[in-house]
Design a protein around this nucleic acid. Structure first.
Lengths: 191, 191
DNA sequence: GTCTATAATTCGATAGAC
DNA sequence: GTCTATCGAATTATAGAC
């Protein structure tokens, strides 16, 4: 009959619903506490369908954290505003609708799941390091990248996972003006 | 017969062995993946003894993360060296034999376990905030504490949990000289 | 494609012999 | 105090009816 209003088949919509439900639950409670049953319930389908469509919980998890970072092109950024641009982009990433949830999943999981921690290290080596290497040829760029990543990951941890009150209630602009200068120094200043 | 070479009873030694094994496993794989059976195996005792001595896995976990922070007395520190002193003490704490393991347990677990996350928030409110309040009456001390905590937690996460190569291989003195000035600004500088 | 029923493990926790 | 045996609940995953 083909009387669906969209071009997506029912199975495609079901798959998407499962994935969305899984991302939500993984982000909220982590890998181990997010059961297949709970994911199915949130997607309003049968638990058996989750396995049917994805094969296993492990595969579903791998799919849920699958994405690329889309870092900003700092090569086109005014030299004096590198720090500001970096932290602003970071906040947009985490608080945007697309990747925010997946990043929270990954961060939460990487504390106990080695597959997730490995993905973190891989993203660092494959994306963060090259991005910084492009804008500066100062020495010890990997150390600089480490310092920057540490600060940014700490913000994400306190704001989105631990929910430390003062960090949660800070407005994005306040974060930018406070942390931007620090990142600026880590990029081009003295160590 | 009382022919033990030490004054500690066997039950006390067993309890200590269980607690040590639990701390090790909790630190390595987190709360959910550390099973009572594995903990017992590491302590070379029967799984039933774990429950007998501690009542439940939850209680055992609570005992494993039980400690106080012993923060430095910054009130006696030269004003210009507050940042240095803070990061140096932080590193000593994490890399020392006494509390390092427990802190790793707590950090790892707090990503997925709400009890652990609540303890983190409690430690922040009960110890970190008052410490900073003592040395400065500038405005927005809770924001300053949040910035400092974010950076420090990020270092711990990248160095002891995610094991990001450049952060792991940094020497303590390099961390102090890089991050000290940042913390100094977060304590007494402009936001 | 969907769901019921259940297999196969694994978990924390308990009962009771010794 | 210690260990064997096991319970009951929860988990992922599968088989098969519809």
């Amino acid at each position: 009959m083909q009387n669906n209003k969209s071009k997506t088949s029912k199975s495609e919509r079901t798959t998407a619903a499962i994935l969305a439900a899984a991302q939500g639950l993984f982000a909220e409670v982590g890998y181990e506490r997010a059961t297949v049953r709970d994911i199915a319930a949130r997607a309003s389908i049968d638990p058996a369908m989750v396995i049917r469509y994805f094969g296993s919980k492990d595969v579903l998890f791998a799919r849920a954290i699958e994405f690329d970072l889309r870092l900003p092109n700092l090569a086109q950024t005014e030299l004096s505003r590198l720090g500001d641009t970096l932290i602003r982009h970071f906040l947009d990433l985490w608080e945007g609708p697309t990747s925010g949830g997946r990043l929270t999943i990954l961060l939460r999981a990487s504390a106990t799941n080695d597959e997730a921690a490995a993905k973190m290290r891989k993203m660092f080596a494959a994306q963060v390091l090259p991005m910084l290497a492009k804008i500066s040829d100062r020495g010890e760029m990997s150390v600089r990248a480490g310092l920057i990543s540490s600060h940014l990951m700490g913000i994400a941890l306190c704001r989105y996972v631990l929910k430390l009150p003062p960090v949660v209630s800070m407005k994005p602009e306040q974060i930018v003006s406070s942390i931007g200068p620090t990142l600026q120094r880590y990029i081009v200043g003295p160590l």
